[in-house]
């Protein structure tokens, strides 16, 4: 069966209404398996040859991972001038959607524990393989119907060493503007000290802030200013005062300690393995996905966010 006929597209779920988007995400029915899946349709005509190379590397990387908290791709098919990447359907969308709902503060902390711990599992796996994800943020953390938390957005991942975690990289990520908020200062610095996989831990800390408070300490600042603050080392003070001044939600002390461990300068920053032993996570009593199940009935699956037909 040709891939074009195999999938029945149901609904566009990337939430953008611009009809010229080169990448769209759809729910679809896979007639071969009968399953509901998600398909990312990438228009290659809007991509340069270098982008095709990046896409190839991303798919190859994802294909080399097998972990319950890391996204998998079923298939990457060329259809016309598009590539259709088929993957499991994460019906609750990204963690940003999930945390946008009305939840009680103590429940929110439980939810944070679960989500962050799952991402940490994924990071332990990736770092062990010599990969740095380099783009950890709320948007790249997906939630499935049964509450599974899954890390996606692998296009900026880089592999530095197959065997050792003590590598140092220097190259800057291309097309990183929309990730500057989450990026570790040493990743942005591009100096001779370089960076290593601990950049992901910094970003995890920023993601924790993003999800916990529903916004980021730099929300209305221009990208260049954020960049400068990070390079000048004053971003820490900003994050600190943001947390101090946001008094409408209060978390336990161990949450703030966790953030501290993530935002330390890279030599003192905790590794993924160390962070997994942090007291913040000690309080997870049920380690399975039941935690999330309790909240999911409150949340809306994204397929309910109807996009009217006129939009695309």
């Amino acid at each position: 069966m040709t891939d074009a006929k195999r999938y029945k597209f149901l609904e566009r779920i990337d939430g953008k209404d611009n009809s010229n988007n080169s990448t769209t995400v759809w729910t679809a029915e896979d007639s071969k398996s009968g399953n509901m899946i998600a398909i990312k349709r990438i228009n290659l005509e809007n991509k340069c040859i270098k982008d095709l190379e990046i896409l190839r590397n991303e798919i190859a990387a994802v294909r080399s991972f097998k972990h319950p908290n890391i996204i998998c791709y079923y298939d990457a098919a060329t259809v016309g001038n598009e590539t259709w990447l088929s993957m499991p359907y994460y019906s609750y969308g990204s963690s940003v959607n999930l945390f946008a709902m009305d939840i009680l503060p103590n429940q929110k902390e439980l939810l944070l524990m679960h989500v962050l711990r799952s991402v940490l599992n994924a990071l332990i796996y990736l770092h062990e393989l010599g990969y740095a994800h380099r783009d950890i943020k709320g948007k790249n953390i997906l939630i499935s119907a049964n509450g599974n938390v899954c890390l996606s957005g692998m296009d900026k991942a880089t592999k530095k060493s197959t065997f050792k975690q003590d590598w140092v990289a220097h190259e800057f990520i291309e097309r990183a503007a929309d990730s500057v908020v989450w990026a570790a200062p040493e990743l942005l610095a591009q100096d001779i000290h370089g960076y290593n996989c601990k950049v992901d831990i910094y970003s995890l800390g920023m993601t924790a802030v993003e999800l916990a408070y529903g916004r980021i300490p730099f929300d209305d600042m221009p990208v260049t200013q954020i960049l400068l603050e990070k390079l000048n080392g004053i971003s820490h003070a900003r994050i600190h005062s943001f947390i101090q001044n946001t008094t409408d939600v209060v978390f336990s002390n161990s949450f703030y300690q966790l953030l501290d461990s993530c935002f330390k300068s890279d030599s003192d920053r905790w590794s993924a393995v160390q962070l997994a032993t942090h007291p913040f996570f000690k309080r997870i009593k049920i380690t399975n996905e039941d935690i999330l199940q309790e909240f999911l009935h409150l949340a809306k699956p994204i397929s309910e966010f109807k996009v009217s037909e006129g939009d695309y």
Partner: peptide, 12 residues
């Protein structure tokens, strides 16, 4: 091949 990843790898 229509599999983008395999065809691109082979091309490389």
């Amino acid at each position: 091949l229509s599999a983008f990843d395999v065809a691109s790898d082979a091309f490389s």
